[in-house]
Structure formats: C-alpha cells, structure tokens
Write a protein that binds this DNA or RNA. Sequence first.
DNA 1: GTCTATAATTTGATAGAC
DNA 2: GTCTATCAAATTATAGAC
Lengths: 206, 206
Amino acid sequence: MTTEEKILLAAKKSFFEKGYDGAKMQDIANDAGINKAMLHYYFRSKELLYEKVNMSFAKVIIPQINSLVDTELNIFQTIENFVEIYLEFLQKNPDLPSYFIGEMNRNHDMFFKVLSENATQPNFVAFAQKIYSAIEQKEIRPVNPIQLILNIISLCIFPYLAAPMLQYATQSDDTFIGEIIANRKKEITSFILHSLTNQNDVLYEN
Amino acid sequence: MTTEEKILLAAKKSFFEKGYDGAKMQDIANDAGINKAMLHYYFRSKELLYEKVNMSFAKVIIPQINSLVDTELNIFQTIENFVEIYLEFLQKNPDLPSYFIGEMNRNHDMFFKVLSENATQPNFVAFAQKIYSAIEQKEIRPVNPIQLILNIISLCIFPYLAAPMLQYATQSDDTFIGEIIANRKKEITSFILHSLTNQNDVLYEN
DNA sequence: GTCTATAATTTGATAGAC
DNA sequence: GTCTATCAAATTATAGAC
C-alpha cells in the first residue's frame, strides 16, 4: 500500500468518526503510521484532504444508486430490488449515513461543492415514471411518487442513523440491534408492498 | 432576559448549527452580545456549557414522546395521533434531528451521559402492547411492533435529516421541499394505515 | 457581574536537513 | 519522499481591574 493510500484510509476513518471539525491531522498521521508533514506534502491542506476523501466515495455511490432502477422489472420487483441492493450497500457501509447527514448539515458548502464537481446527480426520474405507470394500470393505489421514494429511502437508511439511540431506548445489546437490522429487508419490503396494494380508503379521521 | 439565558440561547444556536467541535466560544459570546470571559464565569468550560444546552431539551423531549400514546384511543387513532404530534414537534424544531443524530454518533459518550442523567428513558412499551392487542383482535395484520414503531419514526424524522440532499437531488427551491414536508402528515398516515389494514399476502418473491 | 488583557494549549501548516 | 523542528494562528481558559 502506498503512502497516499495509507493517508486516505486513515483520513476517511477519522472524518467518518469525528466529522471535519472533530478530525485532527495529528490523529490521521498517527493512524497512517507516518508523519504529519507528509499529509501536507501529499494533500497540501486539511480541506483538500477532506475533499479527496469525499470524492472517493461520491464517485462510487451516486452511480450505484442511479443504476438501481432496472427497466426490465415490474414495479414490485423494482421496489424489492431497490430495497435489497440499498440495504446490502448500507450493511457494508453502516457508518456512511451518519457521516453523510452530519457533514451535509454542518459543512454544507464544502460538501456539496465536491458532490456537484465529482458526481452525477442522483436521478429518480426513471423510478418516478415507473411508479406513475403502475398507478395508471391500477397495479398500485394512487400515491405521490416523490413521497413514495422518500418513504422507501427513509425506511432503509434511518435505522443506521438511529442505531445508538435504538440501543439506548431498548436497553439492549448489539445482538438485538443486529437482529432488527437483519430482519429489515423483509420488514420494509412487506411494509411497502402491503401499503401499495391496498386500494381501500383507510383514513379514519381527517 | 438574564445573561445566563442569553448565553444558553446563543450556545444552543451555535451547537445546533456547527456541532460541539465546530462551535466556537467566541462566536457564542458575540451572538449573546457579551464577552467571552462571561461564558466561563457562568459555565466554567465549553464542555459544561454543552451539557447544559443538551440538558435543557433532553428534559423536555423524552417525556413528550412518552406521553404520546394515549390509552383511550384505538390503534389507528393512536398512530395518527403519534404522527401528528411528532410532526408538529419537528416542524417547530426542524434542526433538532440532524443535531441529535450528528452529536449522538460523534460525541457519543458526552451525549448519552447527559441523556441518562437528565431524562427518563423513552418508553415504547405501551405503544408496543397496543400494537400487540390490535394484532390479536385482527384489526391489523401481524407485524413486529418494534419494527413498526421504527418504521413510523423513520418516516417522520428522515425528511428533516435529508432536506438539503432532497433539495439537491430534485434541484428545486425551498417552496417545493416545504410543500413535500407540509403534505407529509397525510402521506405518512395514509402509507402506514394502508399497510397495516392489508391482510393479504403480498410478497412476490423471497 | 462585567470587562480587558493575557496565558496556555491545540492545531494546521511550513522550512530545511537528509 | 520522509523526517524533525518550528512557526503562526486559532481557541479554550484564566487573572485581575473596575
């Protein structure tokens, strides 16, 4: 592994754990097993190092998300596929959501600068259109496509954000939380499809 | 307004915007319209000030959440009530979720120390039991109560966490995002109740 | 209680030898 | 490329006058 790779790996670890403000160059250097001066030799400043780290996954994630809506599948298979791939990705990167949300809300400008320069826009148009036509053909009940997509993503991501609170609230150990997350794929898919295929009016009050 | 109150207000603003690491004592002092030395006179250190700020809402929030499950209502009214009050609270405190999630994942120890010392545990037992009995009486389809509660909370909170990303992804202005959030109560309630009252088997694959 | 001035420490960044 | 030594700025915290 080259020095540059060692730095990027250590930097990602620090930024993910502590955020931009909390991460310290000295810690990154120690963790990479090299000297602090080397960080500046390779990346010039903390800010540029931060941008490089964010670039490294911005380029990977957005295209992955955009490719999730395979046009050959019907609406039900599309949703199941989306949830499955999304959750698989999250299980491999469980600390990504809280980093993403945290940095997006705190270091707004720096974060979106990298995103707009290095990644294609997330594109949900194909997904929304598939939802539209499924409604037209009465395969699912009428819903606002954007709200539905938001629902699906909420259900997938939120447990990873709330894991520490979930553990605190249920006063349980890691295994219990792990179990909840492991059952999440089935739960979410079932939850969504039950909702979409119920054409009845279910609002009990206004 | 006393000096102490002015400090707490300014501190909350800074911590909410920047997090513990990003917030600076000088900014807090400026924002409160007083001198930096006063912060230490009243709260001794940044860490203690941080704890006081967190205490001030930890004492308020958790009891509110615990009181949401009114025992007189049936399962459908309970859920609608829960979503309504929860969303009303979030609309009044739209920056609370990202602060909460960010600090919980970054300054884990400091954060939960305050929570355990100053707030009662969030208690979802009453809610879970109401879900159980609704299943027994076949008012709703069989679900895991914890998963359902997690679903409900996910749907309520996540849009507030993802608002900047939502704006970026849809390339829209504030009004559009505001509209989505405004329609959220109806959407979430409808989404959940449609799912729960659909007793059919809807899983299309395994 | 409130302020100015200053100490003490942390931290990002650079200079220069090897 | 890599290191040690050091600088300059930022930041938390305190001392002491009023």
